[in-house]
Design a protein around this nucleic acid. Structure first.
Lengths: 344, 344
DNA sequence: TTGAAAGCGCTACCAT
DNA sequence: ATGGTAGCGCTTTCAA
C-alpha cells in the first residue's frame, strides 16, 4: 500500500492552503481559473483521492445505502434468481449518483439494525418486509430515509415500490377463464389461508384471482388453494395435489420457479401441458422462455424495480420533493405455450 | 432521526472520561469491573452505538470489503443465478466477522477503482477477472488485500479461489466416453479457440476434456468446439449446430444455463435426450434437477466458494499467516437423466 | 485504574 | 480569491 497522500500534500505541492484544495474538489467557493487548473493538475499527478471517511465524519453523510434482504439463508434465496436483478438495478442506480450499496442479509428476528446507525447509512431499501415485522419498526424508529419493496405496508407515508400485483393476477386468471377454464387452482405459498391478508404480495394476487372469478361469475372455492411454498419443490409437490383434485384444468402459480417445479412433476405423472392442465407463472424469469413448453407468465421488470426504489430513496435523501410515495410498476401477461383450452 | 448521542454523552452520564468509555467498548486497557458495568449500563440505556466513521478515520480501517463483479450489465448477469449464491456466501462470512460488503458492479474498461481508495476498503474480492485485465492491475498496484475468484491468474503470490475445473471436466467427459460416446461436442463460450488459454476457467475445462479424450485414445477434433456464449440463448443456438454435425452423439456444455437452452432447442427439433444426444452441464444450479429430463452436470458449491474467498481475505487483512494461496474447491459429477448410451 | 490531549483528513465558516 | 482554523467522534499514547 503506497503511502497515503492527503489534502495537505496536495496543498503543499500546489503552494496553496488546504481550504482551496477542498474548494476545488467540491466546486465551492470562488477559485481563480489558474489555481483551479494548477491544483487539478497536481491532484492528477499525485494520484490523490479524498478520504471519504474523513469527509463523511465532517459532513455526516456516508453516501452509502443499505440494501436489506430478509434472511440471506442459502435455502431461501437460492430459489430466487430474482434478487440478483433487483440488486443489479439498485447498484446501477446508486452508482450513477455516487452512492454505494452495503449489502445486509439480515436475520429478521435477531437483527437490531445497529449497522445502520454505526455506519451512518444515508438510507435503506428493504425488500419484502411484512406488516408488523421487526425490520419495519426498527427502520421507522430511526427515522431514516427508507424505501420498501414488495412490502404492502398500510402506512401511507412510507415510500414503497411494488407491482400491479392484483391487476396482473386478475389478467392471468381472466385469460385462463377466456380459454374456457372454470376450475382454476392457485399455488399461493406456504401460509394459512385465513391470514393471507398479512402477506401483502400474496394477498394482492389472491384478490386479483378473485376479481377475475367475480367478473366471470365463477364461485370462489377455497379447496382450490394449494398451500405449498412458491419454490421449485413446492411446485413439484403441488402437481400431485393438483392431479388429485379431479375437475381442475388449470393452475396459476405465484412464481415462475414453482411453475417449473409443476411442469417437471406433471410430465413425470404423464400429464400434458396444456393438454391436461394449463399452467401460468409469475415473474417472467430469464429462463421462463426456455422451459418446455415455454411458460405463460405475468412479466415484471425486476431491474426497473430496483432502479425505481433507489431513485425514490435518493430523492428523499437529497430532500427533493416527493411526488409519489407509492409506485406500482406495470405487469404484462406473456402468453406462451403452457396455456390452452381445457380438455373436453 | 433522534439527536445523535456520542461518546462524550456517555462519558458525562457515567462521570468518567471518554478514554475510559473507549476502553470499555474495545476491551482494552484495564478498567475496574465497577466502572465497566456502570458504563455498559449507561450505553444500553442511552442506546449508544459508536460512530464507525470516526473510528475508521482514526484506525485507518473500514471493516468494509468490496465485492467486485465485472460489468453489472443486465444482459450479463441475468443469465447467472449463480452470482447470487456467491454473494450470499461472501455476505455471510463477512457478517460473522463484523465486516460489511460493498457491492461494486464495475465496467471493466473504464473503472478506476477509485472507490477502493476513497472508502478505504480493507480488501476486495474480485470475480472472474482474466489475466492482464484492468481490474487485476489496478488492484495489484494498490497493494491491497485481495482474493480472486475463478480467475486463474499466473502470479503464484495472488490469493485465489477456483474449482477443480479441469478434473471436473475430465470426469464428465470420461463419463460420456464410458457411456460409449466417441464424438463429443463442447460448448466452450464465445471466444476464439486460439486464445482459449487467456480464459482461465474455460481453458481448464477444455484441458479436462482433452485429458479424458487422451486417456481413451480418442483424437481431439477442433471441429467439435462450438464457439457460442455459455448462455441460454447460446445453448439454444448450439443445438442447431450440433444437429448439423452428423456423427456427434453428445455435448458437454460449460454451464447449466446453456445446457437448458440446448435441451429446449433439441426438443423443438424433435431430438430425444439422451436418446439422440447426451447432454452434460456444469454448475448444478438449483433448477438443474427440475429440467425435463433432469440434467447431468458437474456440481460445484458456489456458496462455499464465496465463504472460502472471504475467509482467505479476512485472514490476510488480519495478518494471519497464509497457509494456502490457491484453493481449488471440489467438484462432483451428478448423473441424472440427460446422459445415456449413444444411439446405435 | 483513569484522564488529558493529540491527532486522523476533511469541510466550512470567517477573516483577510 | 485565498487562508486560518475549529471541529466531526473516535483511539491511543502518556501521565497521573
Amino acid at each position: 500500500m503506497k503511502p497515503d497522500i492527503n489534502i495537505v500534500d496536495v496543498a503543499q505541492a500546489a503552494g496553496v492552503s488546504i481550504a482551496t484544495v477542498s474548494n476545488v474538489m467540491n466546486g465551492k467557493g470562488r477559485v481563480s481559473v489558474a489555481t483551479r487548473q494548477k491544483i487539478e493538475k497536481i491532484i492528477a499527478e499525485l494520484g490523490y483521492s479524498p478520504n471519504l471517511t474523513a469527509r463523511n465524519l465532517k459532513t455526516k453523510r456516508s453516501d452509502l445505502i443499505g440494501l436489506v434482504v430478509p434472511t440471506m439463508q442459502p435455502g431461501r434465496l437460492q430459489d430466487n434468481p430474482f434478487y440478483w436483478d433487483l440488486l443489479a438495478g439498485v447498484e446501477e442506480g446508486a452508482r450513477d449518483r455516487k452512492f454505494h450499496i452495503i449489502l445486509a442479509g439480515i436475520d429478521e428476528s435477531t437483527e437490531t439494525f445497529s449497522f445502520v446507525k454505526e455506519r451512518r447509512l444515508d438510507g435503506v431499501i428493504v425488500v419484502g418486509a411484512n406488516e408488523g415485522s421487526q425490520a419495519v419498526d426498527r427502520v421507522l424508529e430511526m427515522g431514516l430515509p427508507a424505501v420498501f419493496i414488495d412490502s404492502y405496508l398500510a402506512d401511507p407515508k412510507l415510500l414503497q415500490v411494488y407491482l400491479e400485483d392484483r391487476k396482473g393476477s386478475c389478467r392471468a386468471t381472466r385469460y385462463l377463464i377466456e380459454q374456457g377454464h372454470r376450475r382454476i387452482a392457485l399455488l399461493i405459498g406456504d401460509i394459512p389461508l385465513e391470514r393471507i391478508a398479512y402477506y401483502g404480495v400474496l394477498y394482492e394476487r389472491w384478490l386479483g384471482y378473485r376479481d377475475a372469478l367475480d367478473e366471470a361469475g365463477i364461485a370462489y372455492d377455497p379447496k382450490l388453494m394449494i398451500k405449498l411454498p412458491t419454490s421449485l419443490e413446492g411446485g413439484y409437490q403441488a402437481a400431485d395435489r393438483l392431479t388429485e383434485m379431479g375437475d381442475v384444468t388449470a393452475i396459476f402459480s405465484f412464481s415462475d420457479v414453482s411453475a417449473m417445479g409443476l411442469l417437471k412433476r406433471l410430465r413425470e405423472l404423464g400429464k400434458g401441458v396444456p393438454r391436461d392442465y394449463s399452467v401460468v407463472g409469475f415473474d417472467n424469469l430469464f429462463m421462463s422462455n426456455y422451459t418446455s413448453p415455454s411458460l405463460t407468465t405475468v412479466a415484471q421488470n425486476i431491474l426497473e424495480k430496483g432502479q425505481e426504489a433507489v431513485r425514490m430513496l435518493l430523492d428523499q435523501i437529497d430532500g427533493n420533493p416527493i411526488v409519489k410515495r407509492q409506485v406500482a410498476l406495470p405487469v404484462e401477461l406473456i402468453v406462451r405455450e403452457t396455456t390452452g383450452a381445457p380438455p373436453v
